[in-house]
């Protein structure tokens, strides 16, 4: 079993990630590895650094120190004459194509239809012809249950529908890894399920995902690991069963008492 597991390639390898804003150290040396097909749920108190850490994985946030590798490629740095030098934003943009991100506030482009939102990555990043990108986008929208909403603008869609478009938009780039930052926190309760359903389906299809969320149902049903981050450190990293039944640290127990 363990032998088989290590044979699965690493998608994410984050080593000793540190980040400060002014005097405040928000990330104090976070380590995380994620293998292909794994779903990792990140939990933790507000302000603990979950979003900041997630954003260092695609370099929307530049870590002060430590290294992030996605599929073995160091993010944000390139090799020049044997030395690691910071890359320009233009080069980092190329590296980001392997990673999709879904935001709490959806961040759909309001001036584009659902279809064009989904096609925007392939068209503007990969220079795919518009007709071809739209055909692929149509399929992705059907996959998230929005085949009839292709022509709608974000303002004409419910929150749950917008978030599903956002997931389709991220998928259109065929990422190796999907990052979710509280994808259901801005949704009315009755819309949470439709978004989680899509995420569960992605897991079944083998997508590697890191999800910051407080949806305990999703954690139990769909996560392979739960990582508890507090005060800028990984406090706990284990299977959902162990995490909920036998947390090792006092900090985790306090947190679970408050949210369960």
């Amino acid at each position: 079993m363990t032998v088989e597991k290590t044979a699965v390639p690493l998608v994410v390898e984050a080593r000793q990630i540190r980040k400060s804003y002014g005097e405040v150290e928000v990330l104090k040396g976070i380590d995380l590895t994620v293998r292909q097909g794994e779903v990792v749920l990140i939990l933790g108190p507000s302000g603990g650094g979950k979003s900041t850490f997630l954003r260092t994985l695609n370099h929307l946030e530049t870590p002060d120190s430590g290294a992030v590798s996605i599929c073995g490629e160091r993010i944000g740095y390139g090799d020049r004459a044997g030395r690691q030098v910071p890359l320009r934003e233009r080069r980092i943009a190329v590296q980001r194509r392997r990673t999709g991100m879904v935001f709490q506030q959806f961040n759909l482009f309001p001036n584009m239809t659902a279809l064009d939102n989904v096609a925007s990555g392939p068209v503007h990043v990969n220079d795919v012809p518009k007709a071809e990108a739209r055909a692929a986008a149509r399929e992705l929208l059907a996959m998230v249950g929005l085949a009839d909403k292709t022509g709608s603008y974000p303002a004409q869609l419910s929150g749950g529908q917008q978030q599903r478009v956002a997931i389709a938009r991220a998928l259109a780039m065929r990422p190796e890894l999907l990052l979710f930052d509280e994808p259901t926190s801005a949704l009315d309760p009755e819309m949470v399920g439709e978004v989680l359903d899509v995420m569960v389906r992605l897991r079944e299809e083998g997508m590697t995902m890191i999800v910051v969320s407080h949806e305990m149902g999703f954690a139990r049903a769909a996560a392979d690991r739960v990582v508890f981050i507090a005060d800028g450190l990984v406090v706990e990293d284990k299977s959902p069963d162990l995490f909920f039944s036998a947390p090792e640290h006092e900090r985790t127990r306090q947190f679970l008492e408050r949210i369960l």
């Binding site: 695609n58 929307l60 934003e89 233009r90 943009a93 190329v94 980001r96 194509r97 990673t99 999709g100 991100m101 935001f103 506030q105 961040n107 759909l108 482009f109 925007s120 990555g121 503007h124 990043v125 956002a166 938009r169 991220a170 780039m173």
Partner: peptide, 13 residues
């Protein structure tokens, strides 16, 4: 969030 979403997709500046 708009420019962040665009950057996350891999768009150059």
């Amino acid at each position: 969030g708009q420019s962040e979403a665009a950057r996350a997709l891999g768009m150059p500046p």
